[in-house]
Simulated assay, not measured.
Amino acid sequence: MVDIIYLLEMTGIVAFAISGMIVARAKNMDPVGIFTIGFVTALGGGTLRDLMMDNHPLYWMKHQELPILILCIAVVFSYWNRAHRIRESRIVLPDAIGLGIFSILGAQLALDLGHSLFIASLLGVMTGTFGGALRDILCNEVPYIFRKDQIYASISFAGCWVYFACQWLLDSEVTALTVGLLFIVIVRMAAVRFDIRLQRDPFQK
């Protein structure tokens, strides 16, 4: 089980880092900027989670291979000639994958530390969304989490509760993780594809 969780963490970090670097490259940032945006996107949510739960040392400080991996990806993005052709719209899938993985794993860590289901779900949302929010703020964009035309944090919140329900109904942590993750990724992608929103402008057709 530990290997599966670590694999998911690595996948989420790579997905979020790539989503950040695509935006950074589109903003014509230099290699330092590309690394910085990738780093805060991938590890910002987990850092905030650890600080709020007084969980020290921070996760990425215990696992130096993670920032090293992000640095390597940043070097590729900085000097790969075709990287500038990747449109910002391409971040939707890696961002959805990162959102799903970190929301579920953040919620589970909170449960492991003795927090209630509701607090765990909030910490899961924080873990899944804060890195992307930092990415958008640093790139001078309104964060997904605050956009009226995007369903983002609510999907993370609902996905955490789907995960909790699967834990209770199914005697399989792997199945619960899989269902919770797929729920967040699929619903997020569907929301973007079909323009599903929590609220619409009454004057908008």
Rank of each mutant, 00 (worst) to 15 (best):
M1P: 04
V2I: 14
D3F: 12
I4L: 09
Y6G: 04
M10T: 08
T11F: 09
I13Q: 13
F16E: 00
F16I: 02
F16Y: 06
G20L: 06
G20F: 04
K27V: 02
M29N: 13
G33H: 07
F35G: 11
F35A: 13
G38Y: 07
G38Q: 08
G38N: 08
A42V: 03
L43F: 10
G46P: 06
L48R: 08
D50K: 07
L51K: 06
L51I: 15
L51D: 08
L51F: 14
N55T: 11
P57V: 08
C72M: 12
A74G: 15
A74M: 12
F77I: 10
S78P: 06
Y79N: 02
W80T: 07
R82V: 11
R82N: 15
A83F: 14
I86H: 14
V92L: 12
V92R: 03
I97D: 02
I97C: 05
G98M: 10
L99H: 05
L99F: 07
I101Q: 02
F102Y: 02
F102S: 00
F102M: 00
S103N: 04
A107K: 01
H115W: 03
L117S: 09
I119P: 09
S121G: 04
V125N: 00
V125S: 01
M126S: 11
T127M: 01
T129N: 06
G131I: 01
G132Y: 05
G132P: 10
L134E: 01
R135Y: 05
D136N: 12
D136W: 08
N140S: 14
E141R: 05
Y144L: 15
R147F: 09
Q150N: 13
A153I: 06
I155A: 04
G159H: 07
G159R: 04
Y163C: 04
Y163T: 03
F164I: 04
F164A: 05
L169D: 10
L169T: 14
L169G: 15
L170I: 15
L182K: 00
F183T: 07
V187M: 12
R188H: 05
M189Y: 03
A191P: 13
V192P: 00
D195Y: 08
I196C: 05
R197I: 05
L198I: 12
L198P: 01
D201N: 15
P202S: 15
